[in-house]
Design a binder for these strands. Structure first.
Lengths: 154, 154
DNA sequence: ATATTATAGTTAACATGTTAAGTTAATTGC
DNA sequence: GCAATTAACTTAACATGTTAACTATAATAT
């Protein structure tokens, strides 16, 4: 932790730190660890929470749509749905016009859980914004989006 | 992909997109997917690759040290060591002065693999830098670091 | 010296990320 | 109208993230 470093070592470590995947991962972990303990109390992962939020905004979504909205891959969403369904937080109804499709709905329990968690979640987000600075946060979002775009265009 | 969206829908989606964990995850995935196919050819994850790079810079590190350098948790590093050891890319030697510790060394095969991958990896990193812009990349690194710091100080 | 505590590492258990393969139902093509 | 293809999931397999429990060794403390 507080071990002294030679100049040579500092340089080596700095160059090693310049890894985009790792920097992004560390930032994400820092956000998730410090600001989502209320989810943990209720046994929800951020992905599960995000799925529930998506359904609060629009109920009855299909699994693929939900996966897109939450930026999850279909297999991940498939497992999340099974998990939340087993905990009676959501229920599914097959779509009559297309038997392959499932519409996902929140149960009353799911809505209650949302109401229990949402205030704290919003409060924490507000705290991040204040702590880090609103402009810096905007800047970060923009840079991240730009990065994705510039990587996606070959 | 190109489905038209109502203004209301756009607003909802935008607000939903403002999730730091997800934005960070998406950016990381974009980086990893587009710029590390050479690792995949050799069956290496970015974490395994990072571990090898750390050992190239300094051989004989202990597992905990390696975990710190690579920003991985000890259990993850433990599994990675076992995996790379089974593939004869690294070997371990227990430290005489302290039987709990293991010093990790690259094998010749591990060094060869590094040499095979490194040029492409550096080239891709260079390409990211050009594509995205060096200043923006610097800015992004700085913001990410600031974010971690500001979250860690309670 | 021996009991307590701390450290290094492994294992376990569960959720997710990721790619590929499998299933069932709808669509297309001819 | 039937074969081939596509679409919506699901399942599988493997690596990682994460927390906790466990093992073995070392340090400490009285």
């Amino acid at each position: 932790m507080s071990q002294s470093k030679t100049k040579h070592e500092q340089l080596r470590l700095r160059s090693f730190d310049r890894s985009l995947p790792m920097s992004l991962l560390r930032a994400r972990e820092a956000v998730m660890k410090k600001f989502i303990p209320s989810l943990q109390e209720h046994g929800l992962s951020t992905q599960q929470w995000r799925s529930i939020r998506a359904l609060v905004q629009e109920d009855g979504l299909e699994i693929s749509t939900l996966a897109n909205r939450c930026h999850l891959l279909l297999p991940s969403m498939s497992r999340i749905i099974q998990n939340l369904e087993a905990r009676d937080l959501i229920k599914r109804a097959s779509v009559k016009a297309d038997q392959r499709r499932n519409a996902i709905f929140l149960t009353d329990g799911g809505r209650e859980l949302f109401k229990a968690i949402e205030p704290k979640s919003a409060e924490r987000y507000e705290f991040i914004t204040q702590q880090f600075g609103e402009d810096k946060l905007d800047q970060l979002y923009k840079l991240l989006q730009d990065l994705v775009i510039s990587l996606e265009e070959d």
